[in-house]
Nucleic acid binder design. Structure first.
Lengths: 358, 358
DNA sequence: GTGAAAGCGCTAACAT
DNA sequence: ATGTTAGCGCTTTCAC
């Protein structure tokens, strides 16, 4: 590894001269004659000199690193969001130190500590789940390392960027009612019951669903709860499949439409229908949420709701950088909500297909 | 941030005493009396002392970081492999510095440099694509930072762990022939034509396909080429859909079975069939490769080939650690091949379904 | 315009 | 058993 001292030795100048020549502060360059500087810069380039970041950090320089703690698994919508955040960090000129906690949840403390050790200037939490221990964030607070979260669990004192899922689910439900569906079932997780108010995505989606039902009294709506299973990590589809199989096995009349919490569950539900010989949307309509790329494919393209992932990622990173620069963020407790957009495809049926309009 | 000096000041001992008390070399502990050491350790814990990694590194300590350069995109099989490598690195007690180059391919040099700057002890390349510039690896070679690759492009001097795709495709083709298919078409990328011998996965798969055909002279086999498109990054399914649409539009007789290079392409092909009113496997059979979780779902679960991702990830990381420890690796040029396993599901048809046995 | 030197937090050799 | 000190590579102040 080539150092400033080494360059100085070879050129017969002082180490200080090399430091000033290679400084990224233009003011420093003026301390040297043009020729001397040129000579040093050339030599540094030729020798492949790279400043020792660790030595720079020891002198109090900022690390230029932003940490991302994510929980991606194979849920495509979450993976895409994490990728968008990674790109936003990169584009903002910061380095990324990423750790996917979902693959080793026991290591929350370890990962947080390693972020501190790496002297990250800020942290983005991507989709923190309800089991994420908020206590681990204490070390960031103590060291005044700013943290923002994008989607996932709400956490006190942490600014959050999220999609307006209530509005998204409201729009979806309204559409389903408008095209003639009268018996609606929402498949939701139990996480909001386990950790009250922690898992807003579920609360919000149920809220939007009920809002829409409230303005349509003749429509029958129901919320069915299902739980994340241990194998959800490697297989986000099974949960929807099992739930749909349960509905079929119950022998009760099926709803007109099953609204799933995400596209992955919906795809699992589609598989269960296919297995049972049910046609979608003719026998039962199915909708997803988050609008994954894959949802658009398949025998039955999914009606879904798109989140503004790009905008949310940029928003989160910009906000974090403002906080890094010491700007006070007003209203930390009110999340920033980005509107969702309804995407209508085949799986929800249409007035004609569903055959249920007046 | 609390330092050794700060602890020493508070306890009224020397900084050296603190350093020896907190050293992870047990020999150093003997330099101190038990009581003194206890007192220091307790205080350090209470104050939340964390050693400054950068200062340690300045003193020549190893970084304990392994870098992973990956190219995950939304191709599930690739994302899973990267996740497995991440877990293996974590389990081996190393820290992970990960960068997904697929999202900013122009930055290959930048990412490699930042790995060097971070003083990584080794590098795992996950699925390097054929456009990855080998020149960027030069800096690792110069600094004697070991590099291994898992899957992806073959690179001179870099030990590679990969799946035996030739055997996997051979087994798959043999099975398809055994259950009665007689007209087989393999959908392969053009990458091996663009960069000869660089893109072995394609070469290997075509090889396995042809090997199987060679031992069954009555069977008609064909290789159709298709190319990665610019939108493949965010949509790995479209390429298969477009290819299938092309086959249908050509008006030629369809093959009995379309063998796709990966599950994502196969799912796209399934979508095209569905759109065109073709039943799978009755009208045409379709197979994938890599066996993604999702391939097992859907109206038509995919016949596919499983790679030993866990084993390959552990193998790669273990090998890298051996190299880090200075062990000479024999036969760097011969890749380690892990066997593939055929997974038969509905999409390839069966003697009865295909209706083509004697 | 340039050289000498301090010091960031730590490890380790040396001295008491 | 404890204290002192040098030095990793860098930035920056001070004196020439």
């Amino acid at each position: 590894m080539i150092t400033q001292t080494e360059i100085a030795r070879r050129l017969g100048v002082s180490q200080r001269a090399v430091a000033y020549a290679l400084s990224d502060d233009p003011e420093a360059h003026k301390e040297l004659s043009k020729e001397t500087r040129q000579r040093i810069v050339k030599a540094a380039e030729k020798l492949g000199y790279r400043p020792n970041r660790y030595a720079q950090l020891m002198r109090g320089k900022k690390s230029g690193v932003i940490g991302m703690i994510h929980f991606a698994s194979l849920v495509q919508s979450v993976a895409v969001r994490a990728a968008r955040v990674a790109a936003a960090i990169h584009n903002a000129g910061y380095q990324l130190l990423a750790d996917d906690l979902l693959w080793y949840p026991k290591s929350a403390k370890l990962v947080c500590d390693s972020m501190v050790d790496a002297r990250v200037e800020g942290i983005v939490l991507c989709n923190p789940p309800q089991w994420f221990p908020p206590a681990e964030l204490e070390c960031f607070r103590r060291l005044k390392i700013p943290v923002v979260s994008i989607s996932g669990m709400e956490m006190a004192g942490i600014p959050q960027i999220r999609a307006d899922m209530r509005q998204g689910m409201f729009d979806l439900t309204q559409h389903l009612i408008a095209i003639g569906h009268r018996r609606l079932t929402l498949l939701a997780s139990t996480t909001d019951e386990i950790v009250p108010k922690a898992q807003w995505p579920t609360t919000e989606r149920i809220g939007g669903f009920k809002d829409a039902l409230a303005s349509n009294p003749t429509v029958h709506g129901e919320v069915v709860r299902t739980n994340y299973a241990s194998d959800t990590l490697m297989d986000p589809y099974r949960i929807g499949m099992v739930a749909m199989q349960g509905l079929i096995a119950s022998g009760d009349q099926l709803p007109d439409v099953l609204l799933c919490q995400n596209d992955d569950w919906a795809l699992g539900a589609l598989a269960a229908c296919s297995e049972a010989g049910l046609r979608v949307p003719e026998d039962i309509a199915i909708t997803g949420f988050d609008s994954t790329v894959f949802g658009a494919y398949g025998t039955t393209p999914l009606t879904s709701v798109t989140q503004a992932n790009d905008e949310m990622a940029n928003n989160a990173v910009q906000l974090l950088i403002q906080m890094i620069h010491g700007e006070k963020i007003a209203a930390k407790d009110k999340p920033t909500k980005w509107p969702c957009r309804l995407v209508v495809r085949k799986s929800c049926g249409s007035p004609v297909v569903a055959g249920k309009t007046s």
